[in-house]
Amino acid sequence: MKKIGININTTKDKDGEIIKYVKNVVSKYIDDNNIFIFKDAFGLKNIKYNDLDIIIALGGDGTILRTSRNINNSNTPILGVNIGNLGFLSSVELLEFENAMKKIIADDYYVEDRMMLKCTLPLRGESEEYTALNDIIVSKGTLSRVVKYELHIDDKFYIDFTGDGLIISTPTGSTAYSLSAGGPIIYPNLDVIALTPICPLSLSMRTIVLDSKSEISVSIKCEHESIFLTLDGQRAIKLNSYEKILVSVSNKKCRLVKFNDYNYFGILRKKIISRTTDCEGEKDENCTSCKNN
């Protein structure tokens, strides 16, 4: 381990005490000249940071999402340290950081690759490619009426529907907006893409789960309405009427640092399903659920 980057969400560390603490811990193992501080992901895209061995993302899930979209070298793993509210994607809480750092130095961890999506706007004649770890969303503006969307999968017509929008999510993003809109929970290592409508007017339009090799084409059919393309709920691009969006799996991966005691189902139960600190078995005397049963 030679070079480490630390990306801090400054809105969650207004007095600078958290970044100071984390840097002091890292300094016990890494020379100060090889520790690079980033605020709100600014500067991460600079190619001179392509050789970072790891990036520590201090914040919540949004900080990890922003970090994953902004790093140039997708081989660089991200250690998520939760200082936010949910922290579903994070590997550790802040109080566990020093122990986590010891494991990293001892090479006692593994890296989990997460699928990312890419999309383009072909009718604009632009070459820019947008990426997302959680989801790509096409939706109407706040005061707009419902909009008609036409979907093609691998150049074959699938369906058209009228509604508020469409969520195209990765397995990682299946527990985010897609889940709130009625989509399924998808195990994060599966190679699939989920399409979940937002408030469709027809009962026939429901979530469909596609092979990751699929290319999704979304055509908008509306006039005088505000339509937006949103990436991971963080970046919004205003679309034109009768715009077309092409979505497929990106070659870029998000690589998340995980430790051997990582339990996806325990975290899913605690932070998504029940939002409680439930026990894992039927014989925990401290668990209220166990006592009642």
Rank of each mutant, 00 (worst) to 15 (best):
Y109W: 03
L117C: 08
I104D: 02
K103R: 13
S68E: 03
L95T: 06
V111R: 01
R66C: 07
S127L: 10
G87V: 07
T131K: 15
I83V: 15
M115C: 06
D135T: 06
N73D: 08
N70S: 15
M101C: 12
E129G: 09
D113K: 14
V111G: 02
D108Y: 01
D61F: 07
D135S: 04
T131P: 10
L86T: 07
S90P: 00
N85Q: 14
S90M: 09
E98Q: 12
G62V: 09
E98T: 06
N85E: 06
F97G: 07
E129T: 15
S91W: 04
G141H: 09
V81D: 01
M101Q: 05
Y130S: 06
S127T: 14
A100K: 03
E112Q: 13
S127C: 04
G141N: 06
T76P: 02
G62Y: 12
A132K: 11
N99W: 05
Y130L: 11
N72W: 05
V92A: 05
D135Q: 12
D108W: 00
D108K: 05
E129M: 14
G87H: 09
G60H: 06
T142L: 14
D108R: 02
G125E: 04
N75Q: 13
F97D: 01
T131F: 15
T76A: 13
N85S: 14
I104A: 01
T142H: 14
L95I: 11
E98K: 10
G59C: 09
G80F: 02
L65G: 03
I136Q: 11
E96M: 06
L123E: 14
N99D: 10
D108V: 00
T76D: 05
L121R: 15
L117K: 10
G125C: 11
M101E: 02
I137C: 15
E126G: 13
L58M: 05
Y110I: 00
S90D: 00
V81Y: 01
L95W: 07
P77M: 06
D108S: 01
Y110K: 02
L121Y: 12
S68K: 08
